[in-house]
Design a protein around this nucleic acid. Sequence first.
DNA 1: CTACCTTATAACCACATAGTTATATTGTCA
DNA 2: TGACAATATAACTATGTGGTTATAAGGTAG
Lengths: 129, 129
Amino acid sequence: MDAGSTQGHFCMQALDESALTHVATYFRALSEPTRLRILNTLRDGEKNVGQITELTGCGQANVSKHLALLFESGLVTRAAHGTAVFYGIADAATFDLCDLVCGNVARIVDQQVSSATALKKQLGKVAKG
Amino acid sequence: MDAGSTQGHFCMQALDESALTHVATYFRALSEPTRLRILNTLRDGEKNVGQITELTGCGQANVSKHLALLFESGLVTRAAHGTAVFYGIADAATFDLCDLVCGNVARIVDQQVSSATALKKQLGKVAKG
DNA sequence: CTACCTTATAACCACATAGTTATATTGTCA
DNA sequence: TGACAATATAACTATGTGGTTATAAGGTAG
């Protein structure tokens, strides 16, 4: 089975250099808080650039640039209606992914907090001892 | 329920700015082909820096820097044994994530190929017509 | 056609970062 | 202790990119 096939189970281990770059690009698209904010505004349906600009509080040019990147990365759809351009989530799996990451991140943060607490305790003991 | 809790279902929509940054940082760690290669070498167990350097074909300093970033992002574990330092996957869910993304990417690439093919067909018609 | 509205793009700055080379740090062994 | 091996870090260059401002491009209404 080839990595470009449309069905079956995919495993990063089997990917060649080109596919690895694609995966990295996908993650890169999700690696900016502003882009995550933009994607969040699309949870409840398509919106045009003006609405997204309003909702995120970012500059219009900035939003357009991020939307262009998200579109090129295949994460959002684009549809022009008159002068307005509506963007939407290309794949519902995107949010599954983000929410999965939220779980991972929550675990990491908890671990780091625990480590920090343990370290603090250790340091406390050293200071006292 | 708070976003830092250790159980339950997590949704990006509910995250504040700080959590959003954490999620973005997590994705950022996965957004470089070299780091994905490094993570791939850890699929079948912990390895030290020398082994990872060998397997990836990257420079040792470069590998160390990437490993430091992965460690700080909470994606890998670190354990020193003598002068060697062994790194391992912190959370098996990481590969679930990567493989999920592989599926998404495969779909995107397929769609782009289809679009390109369709476009090519259209252009062909125009050229002929 | 003109004025206006919406979106995309160009130019620019500031900053982050991947990779390299050289070196420091740390642990082991004779 | 001194030589050596493994890893981390500092310094540097080149490149990428987030954000802003100004402007272009495309469509619409009068």
